[in-house]
């Protein structure tokens, strides 16, 4: 930070990034339906309103079901993929891994529309289940990236040592591999959960008549008097995301420290 211009740029960047988020809690506690300064009295009634809106409760329930299922599924798939790609050499490995990681950079709208076309073509009804499928698709690359770090910082001779001492391949995985990559697994579940929870486009296209939290929020933006409650909801969501990502990063780092590897980056 030697250059004043760079410092100003950094400050401006952070402001631009976080100012809108800072506005969320400000208006969530503001006693007025119009989102504008000057602020009126302090209130918690928007938070109370959240708990007495049945449609919101249903959206939260849908979102939780989707986020829990897709984070567990994506992480399970990620474990197999990461294990295979760090331990074995097989023909076409680079290509296969590349294909799996592709959704990471593909525009989500493309993924959503193509999924919609396929699902409709197959005659599958749009429900929370179809959203889970879509979310597994976009969460798996993140899960693999996290789990790859966990698996590749695991000394291979640890598994060989357990096998050498009479364990089977499976009990070696259960007794040695799994506990040592567990921090990575927890981190993967939490990050997938967070991604799924606030994902909008796929949920919008594939949810049918079942709203998720983000699509519900979007539908409520048309009603001005609902906006303060959405602000309150947003505040809760931001807080939850930050907490989950912090825990995820904690586990990722602890995993690396425990297996004696060096940190090769991560998402935070």
């Amino acid at each position: 930070m030697k250059f004043p211009a760079l410092r100003a740029y950094a400050l401006f960047y952070l402001l631009f990034l976080y100012a809108p988020i800072l506005l969320l809690p400000i208006f969530a506690f503001n006693d007025g339906t119009i989102i504008a300064f000057p602020l009126k009295d302090f209130t918690t009634k928007w938070f109370e309103q959240m708990f007495t809106t049945p449609a919101l409760a249903q959206a939260v329930k849908n979102s939780l079901i989707i986020a829990v299922s897709s984070s567990i599924l994506a992480t399970t798939l990620g474990i197999f993929a990461a294990r295979a790609s760090t331990r074995f050499a097989f023909p076409g490995k680079a290509g296969i891994v590349g294909l799996i990681m592709l959704p990471l950079v593909l525009p989500e709208i493309i993924v959503a529309v193509s999924l919609l076309v396929v699902l409709l073509g197959l005659g599958i009804k749009l429900t929370t289940f179809t959203v889970i499928l879509g979310h597994v698709l976009i969460c798996t690359p993140y899960a693999i990236a996290i789990l790859n770090t966990a698996f590749s910082s695991l000394d291979r001779s640890l598994e060989e040592a357990a096998y050498d001492l009479g364990e089977t391949k499976w009990s070696t995985f259960r007794l040695i591999t799994l506990p040592l990559v567990m921090p990575g697994i927890i981190s993967s579940v939490l990050i997938s959960f967070t991604i799924s929870l606030d994902e909008f486009i796929i949920a919008f296209f594939l949810a049918g008549s079942e709203p998720t939290l983000p699509t519900y929020i979007f539908s409520q933006l048309r009603f001005p008097k609902q906006i303060p409650m959405i602000m309150a909801l947003g505040t809760v969501l931001v807080l939850m995301s930050v907490i989950l990502l912090t825990i995820a990063e904690y586990f990722r780092r602890r995993g690396i420290a425990k297996t004696g590897g060096t940190d090769t980056g991560g998402f935070l």
Binding site: D155, S157, L158, E160, A161, A162, Y163, D164, L165, G166, E167, T168, I176, P179, L180, K258, T259, G260
Partner: peptide, 19 residues
């Protein structure tokens, strides 16, 4: 297979189970 052989190994990295 290795887990059925009457041999045991001391690895170069020692492979001590860290947990």
């Amino acid at each position: 297979p290795a887990n059925k052989r009457p041999t045991n190994m001391v690895f170069q990295s020692y492979a001590i189970f860290p947990h």
